[in-house]
Design a binder for these strands. Structure first.
Lengths: 249, 249
DNA sequence: GGGTGAATTCGACTATTGGCTAATAGCACC
DNA sequence: GGTGCTATTAGCCAATAGTCGAATTCACCC
């Protein structure tokens, strides 16, 4: 964990958490101020980053105005942009409270609308290995897992949380050899993901994997995408991917 | 994990996450709709819960109007209120993606403004055991841990994430006998919390605990509060605690 | 065809957010 | 005292959010 850039989805989770905290605060102005102070940023500095007058920042923080959703989004984005300029010092701290091991999770997002299994098969350039399982379920989000790192670094319960294991989410295991160990992990999990996608260097699927999926009642998809990157990009396109552009300071 | 009510702080984390997702969505209207569909709620039902006309919901979801922060808060609160009426079916699913073991974490929140060590000592009705350690640091949030359950159910890395282990957060260990095992856990952690509070049935503190705190450079506070509940309430009062009142359906 | 329920569209009005400039205040330091 | 920096306040205008009710559309069923 050197000076590498935090992963996009982590930054995005942090941004959403901060924004949500402000929205639900009983005093949104004070919440704006709290987070600005947390990032150790002056009103002048964030005003410059947002290209507005400093008095606007004061108006909001003192409660003269209540921030709308658009303003909150820009304010939080500016906090993060400035933290980036400083080397992500605060984001590195905050990511420790997220509870996701970044080395094992490649990406984790919500789709911007509900997605069908058929659409997901298309997105991951895959084939469905369990055609007889209920394909009507709807998927609202996904987790892309680096299987080798996950197995190396996670205990049972973490795997459980990592799966984002709800019936409305997809889990994509990458770097998979035959598909067996992910399916064994899911088998022992008390709750199941909505659908499992496997992607790996070889195109051979252990029949046991398919049988375990069937027993669990979880659709299993084999992705034939050229690379993990390809999967990441294609799924992100369905997630209303937010790009944090860096304002000139 | 029977039919018990999810803990408040979990519900609140979910609410904030949903709100944040909507705020940062490139199409907030579509995000509103996505979440409503996820909760399997019709426009009419949420309109009734919010006491507005159904056409208002449609205007927002179709993008004719962009939701402000106030509306997002009310919309998300209504989703949750309806889910509560249904027995928290969707919240139970979502809490699995939070990555916090609810049985070990009693409460976990952000303060609504920065809090000094002296203030924290007062809040937990405590005494500072490490008077020579930098007391100028600022605390922005806290985690209240049930020490026995945490030790019983967590592995090393989970403990690490559980601590919310950043220099700006406090960790309160409850059900502590002498204070030694929490300090040992912190000692082996690569990052340290901003301050540690211990609370337990006995008022005896193992001198080793104090020495370990000193070595870690972490202020250690002994709380003399009458109960864990007392601590929860007093800290919540500093957190802009949001109460989800249940609208009549 | 008709009926029902859910969702959408539209015109209109009011309240609030978003932003500005200018003046002022507070604090630390010399 | 002066200087520099940060923050606050007030008045003002424009644009947008919030909301209504009426009419319309759509899907499903008999």
């Amino acid at each position: 964990m050197a000076n590498s850039t935090p992963k996009d989805y982590i930054i995005e989770l942090i941004a959403k958490r901060i924004a949500g905290d402000i929205v639900f605060s009983q005093d949104p102005g004070a919440a704006l101020k709290k987070w600005r102070e947390y990032f150790d940023i002056s009103q002048n500095e964030i005003a410059r980053s947002m290209k507005i007058a400093p008095s606007v920042v004061s108006d909001y923080e003192k409660g003269r105005r209540r921030p709308g959703a658009g303003f909150i989004k820009r304010y939080v984005s500016a906090l993060l942009a400035i933290d980036q300029l400083r080397g992500w010092t605060r984001v590195r701290q905050l990511m420790r409270t997220i509870g996701i091991p970044p080395e094992a999770v490649i990406d984790m997002r919500e789709f911007d609308r509900k997605v069908t299994i058929a659409e997901l098969v298309d997105l991951v350039k895959g084939v469905i290995l369990t055609p007889n399982i209920d394909a009507d379920r709807q998927i609202y989000g996904y987790t892309i897992v680096d299987s080798l790192r996950a197995i190396a670094s996670l205990s049972g319960m973490q795997f459980y949380a990592l799966l984002g294991a709800t019936p409305e989410r997809a889990v994509i295991f990458t770097g998979v050899q035959t598909g067996r160990s992910p399916m064994v992990a899911v088998r022992v999990s008390p709750v199941k993901p909505g659908v499992i996608v496997i992607h790996g260097p070889r195109r051979f699927i252990d029949p046991l994997a398919v049988e375990l999926a069937r027993l669990d009642g979880v659709p299993l998809i084999l992705s034939l995408a050229e690379s993990v990157d390809d999967i990441v990009k294609r799924l992100r396109a369905m997630s209303g991917y937010t790009s944090f552009s860096l304002p000139v300071a």
